[in-house]
Design a protein around this nucleic acid. Structure first.
Length: 276
DNA sequence: CACGAGACCTGTTCGC
DNA sequence: TGCGAACAGGTCTCGT
């Protein structure tokens, strides 16, 4: 499910609460259930139990697509991967069929990490950099300049789509927002990164920021059963719009496969690079 | 360094 | 109607 805007939306909800949902801040962990052992990346369950009980939620943030929970003495990091979601409620609620890890707070608040496909992972670590250390820059960080982005692109001879999906190159983009950003920037996904001009790099960074900000403003995208709440899916320019008209020129959107991922382009606005 | 294939999982949708 | 194939918001590892 979640790319940067969806994770940002979830982090904000967990931090601030909303619609009858309590904030997690200030909650102290009393107990937990690990329903699918593979969900816990580290440490081992015994050690996890020993460490996490009694810790309080001090801060809740996002880095790339990771949820970052600062506890009293450790960081709890959660990656939702394809189908993960975090549900928080008050009182004893029945856990859903797809609950993989549940945390119970002393004040009755309960958190459930739901994940149908079981790809999601949680880490409890002292040093968050041990998990987050290889992530690239945050695209919305204003101190990350177009010049720096251009330099980063120049250093790689790689197709734009797989490069933008690479979290060590830039943190937070996934299949939806890459397709949307490339369409907005009028760049073909197979274009080689080191072929971009300074101006094209600037346009691409601006396009990335525009689609991410719009995604956040609309509380993310919800498709199928996986995520509820957002409505950015109604603004898609290219993603999952195969056979529908391009919003810029009316040409029908095509679906191709790039880096084993479904990829959506306007063949008119995003012409093939000359020598991919 | 870059790329493709396969693995990890389950659920929904598509095509015959 | 039924049933297998294809596909899905992600990332890791391995071989070339």
């Amino acid at each position: 499910m979640p790319e940067l805007p969806e994770v940002e939306t979830i982090a904000r909800l967990l931090r601030e609460g909303g619609e009858g949902q309590p904030s997690l801040l200030g909650c102290t962990i009393r107990d937990f259930d690990l329903l699918w052992p593979g969900t816990l990346a580290e440490p081992a369950p015994r050690q996890f139990r020993h460490l996490i009980i009694g810790q309080e939620f001090k801060a809740i943030d996002r880095r790339g697509k990771f949820l970052v929970f600062e506890l009293s003495n450790h960081y709890l990091l959660i990656h939702l991967r394809m189908s993960g979601d975090i549900l928080v409620g008050e009182g004893e609620q029945p856990l859903g069929e797809y609950s993989r890890l549940a945390l119970y707070m002393e004040n009755g608040v309960q958190l459930s990490f739901n994940d149908a496909r079981k790809f999601g992972r949680a880490w409890l670590v002292e040093d968050s950099q041990s998990v987050l250390g290889k992530l690239g820059p945050e695209p919305l960080d204003e101190s990350f300049t177009a010049e720096a982005f251009h330099r980063r692109l120049q250093a790689r001879r790689r197709q734009l789509k797989p490069l933008l999906l690479d979290q060590s190159f830039l943190a937070g983009l996934g299949n939806i927002y890459v397709d949307e950003a490339l369409h907005l920037a009028r760049l073909h996904p197979l274009t080689l990164a080191n072929n971009l001009s300074r101006r094209q790099a600037g346009n691409l960074l601006a396009a990335i920021r525009q689609v991410l900000r719009e995604g956040i403003r609309r509380n993310g995208s919800s498709i199928d059963w996986v995520y509820r709440g957002g409505d950015f899916q109604n603004q898609f320019r290219a993603y999952q719009r195969t056979g529908e008209p391009c919003p810029e020129c009316g040409t029908l959107i095509e679906r191709i496969v790039v880096a084993q991922r479904g990829t959506h382009i306007c063949p008119q606005c995003q012409p093939s690079p000359s020598f991919p």
